[in-house]
Design a protein around this nucleic acid. Sequence first.
DNA 1: GTTAGCACTCTGTGTCTTCGAGTGCTAACC
DNA 2: GGTTAGCACTCGAAGACACAGAGTGCTAAC
Lengths: 343, 343
Amino acid sequence: MVDTLTERSRQILEAIIEDYIRTAEPVGSRSVTRRHGLTLSPATVRNVMSDLEELGFLASPHTSAGRVPTDKAFRLYVDSLLQVRAIDEEQRDEIRRHYRGQGRDVADILKETSRILSSISHYIGIVVAPRFTANIFRQIEFVKLCGRRILTILVSESGVVQNRIVESDGEIPSEDLVRMSNYLNALLKGLSISEVKTRIFQEMENDKVRYDELMSRALKLSEQTLDEPDTEVFIEGQVNILEQPEFADVAKMKEIFRAFEEKGQLITLLDRCMDAERVNIFIGSENFLNRMNHLSVITAPYASGRNTLGVLGVIGPTRMGYDRVIPIVDYTARMLSELLGSG
Amino acid sequence: MVDTLTERSRQILEAIIEDYIRTAEPVGSRSVTRRHGLTLSPATVRNVMSDLEELGFLASPHTSAGRVPTDKAFRLYVDSLLQVRAIDEEQRDEIRRHYRGQGRDVADILKETSRILSSISHYIGIVVAPRFTANIFRQIEFVKLCGRRILTILVSESGVVQNRIVESDGEIPSEDLVRMSNYLNALLKGLSISEVKTRIFQEMENDKVRYDELMSRALKLSEQTLDEPDTEVFIEGQVNILEQPEFADVAKMKEIFRAFEEKGQLITLLDRCMDAERVNIFIGSENFLNRMNHLSVITAPYASGRNTLGVLGVIGPTRMGYDRVIPIVDYTARMLSELLGSG
DNA sequence: GTTAGCACTCTGTGTCTTCGAGTGCTAACC
DNA sequence: GGTTAGCACTCGAAGACACAGAGTGCTAAC
């Protein structure tokens, strides 16, 4: 693909893409020559642009409107033309500063991360919380509320907490609750949450346990605590998208906001990046969500140790400043990993 | 105020308001006569409308555009013209259905409530989480994560949970953590969270405690857990506002979305409704947030027993269907109270 | 292969006109 | 005196039109 382009075509394409990223307007042959100090005449550039259109890298909204890079052009751009810069020092410091809050809940950290991504990139920040089932079991606690209502608290190695309020079939004295959690904590120590599930199931079949009221109650309670919660997603800075000139149209904006309402689809998309080594980029229509046709997603996985926990990223218009945003996403993912890791 | 209006003027004003609620368009004299079966000619209605404008109940966008009810008119409307209906059976069932999910975390319930409000009203649903400090202390737990990192879990009577990850100054064995929480649980039993704070402060001054490493560590940890978190607000259905014709303008929409970004202001506004008996309504400019000039807020407090916990509500355009939304807000607040209460 | 020149295309903008909805006023009516 | 019909007037929305500007594609010359 790249080799079908001469050096000159590539230069011109790059110039067009960069102009378009800046202005969001179709780029004409003259502005290419003017801006990029090429010693070529507009006419020559026009010929090249015509070829690029033929090859599917450019499109013209109409006869006399200059040309717009296609998704294919952006793909080429991020894959081979773009030179990813190291992260800006200032931005790096800003990220660190945001994180320097006092000790907090994991959910808070994830939310803050999403805010950081949004405020530094000026686009939309998104963080998918760790799949709870992938976590390692640490501890379960029961707290008696009034009556038969019991608060169950499940804690993972990495400090992710899941609470449920469940109703037991009969009143259970506090001492029993303590014994129940001791029993479970011993039973489930060191397992992953998904293993925990099967383990509980096995244990329930165990005859010895079946006739021990305390134990079977404990198992029942823990089972109720475990059923998969919705994967949480933190999205921040949706307003930023309003600043983008290409969405200055109510209909388009509605589309976008609706897309964000259906977090399920978004999660599916982002889940696919879980296994990526580092930064991953979906451009426009590549992401297969029709509604996000004019949006790109830059993602990176974050981890605790060797264990990939989740994905974070930035969503912006297809013409976003990739060179600027890629290092932000990359760096933030590494910082978050550090923060959640055993550091 | 009301008494300055004749019965007829009131009827006409009501007709105009209701038309405007339906159409979002300025209402002309003819449509009033046509729609509302009044045995009056348009000319007469015009005279009345002119009077109403004089009194500040109507405004004309320009000479030939019909008239629009002012905030003052809406205020009169909700205060004396409007007959609040009982809640629609269908809607009531829908609310109940939404709540009939399995046992969950309090935060989940509040979020779901916000979704319910939004999806049934077709406007924006908002729920302010209980001020944590107003809660009654139930239990504190410490869970050791790796190294010196400790997860602290604070549970209130009503089942609200607050977690923090804190770093202790030295490694603490698990058994000590258990002893520490036992000590604190005994110490703080039955106090409100704000009392808990002063109690911990007192205890730290206590000589006997000061030289007991375990206790003073315990106090330090709990102190770190207690510092006030941001009040959480759940806002859902912001997209719904895009459907409203009066906001089909990018500039206005930006304003609104920005207003929602600053949750602080919103909280201040809603906090003022904490003490209200039941449903409370802010119309347009009354809410003192400039950015929410064309929005109204209908709120109701929710409680657990006699103890008011927080506020929920619906935000919609000034011309929202008050008769429909008021019972929704009212009923939802009661349902939520029931759910969080000792039921 | 590159470029200058030129005709052509298309959009955005400003101006003008027309149309319709609605008002305000006046005079007549009950 | 309140109510109504009639009428002139106002204003905005929408359509028609011309014009300028940006950009293209093609051709012929360099």
